[in-house]
């Protein structure tokens, strides 16, 4: 019995036979995937392979896309996130997202980082200040911005902006963080900081990162999933994928001998 309980709690996210379509275009073709809590999972694959679409299924960001349909279920903590009683806003507080290009709101740093609380109706000043400091510290940005919280977020550097976006996501205390190529627009130093951050955040969060940078995937992730033409070709421990991939397609892709 104890074993059964352990079994059901083993995975944070489970995808079951996901198919997705843009209109009649079949972009995800039957993907099953289990993701363990407190792990970093990297999604790799050529552009248009469906990895970003799959990522966005996890916080239902595809819902607004005209003509988008999907079949199959995604379970978060064993609950179907596409069930009719699920409030999508509630889901997104649980599953945060960081985008490819840093996208802070054109407001102050403080307003950015407390936005999530504001939309939940929290206005208590000390609560907001506490959360702002906590999440900025978590995102390793506090020391750099603590004296200019009132300054526009757009005045920050690209790397700082991206860490602000991470802090903003952390402020609402999600349990999963989706990152869509979070460092692709950043210089190597900022990239290193983001990667360091991912490594630290793993302690508390389940992280999924889409990346085109093979080295980044191999550096930060515990497990790697290789997508190709809407299919999950190979999914395994990162070490295994990068040292000894089982599928020739994976090998060709990661070693840059594609096509």
């Amino acid at each position: 019995m104890v074993n059964r309980v352990m079994e059901t709690n083993k995975f944070k996210i489970q995808a079951k036979d996901i198919h997705a379509y843009y209109g009649t275009h079949h972009v995800i073709k039957g993907i099953d995937m289990d993701i363990k809590p407190n792990s970093v999972t990297a999604f790799i694959g050529p552009s248009g392979c469906g990895k970003s679409t799959f990522l966005r299924l996890i916080n239902r960001m595809n819902d607004y896309i005209e003509g988008f349909t999907k079949t199959g279920d995604i379970l978060l903590d064993d609950k179907n996130i596409y069930a009719s009683n699920v409030q999508v806003e509630q889901l997104r507080k649980e599953v945060g997202m960081v985008f490819q290009k840093p996208n802070p709101f054109p407001k102050s740093i403080f307003e950015n980082v407390t936005y999530g609380l504001k939309i939940q109706g929290i206005t208590n000043k000390s609560d907001l200040e506490e959360t702002a400091e906590r999440s900025l510290r978590q995102a390793a940005l506090w020391e750099e911005v603590k004296d200019d919280l009132k300054k526009s977020a757009l005045a920050l550097s690209g790397g700082q902006q991206q860490r602000l976006c991470i802090a903003r996501t952390l402020a609402v205390e999600p349990s999963v963080i989706l990152m869509d190529e979070p460092a692709s627009a950043l210089d190597p130093i900022s990239t290193a900081k983001i990667e360091e951050l991912i490594f630290e955040l793993k302690e508390k969060y389940t992280i999924i990162i889409v990346t085109h940078n093979m080295q980044q995937a191999s550096r930060v992730s515990d497990r790697t999933a290789f997508f190709y033409m809407g299919e999950l070709i190979e999914y395994g421990k990162t070490k295994q994928i990068f040292l000894n991939p089982k599928k020739e397609k994976t090998e060709n892709y990661i070693s840059g001998r594609f096509g």
Binding site: E251, I254, S255
Partner: peptide, 9 residues
């Protein structure tokens, strides 16, 4: 070249 997979091995 940061070799991976067969190249790395």
């Amino acid at each position: 070249f940061s070799p991976v997979a067969t190249d790395l091995r």
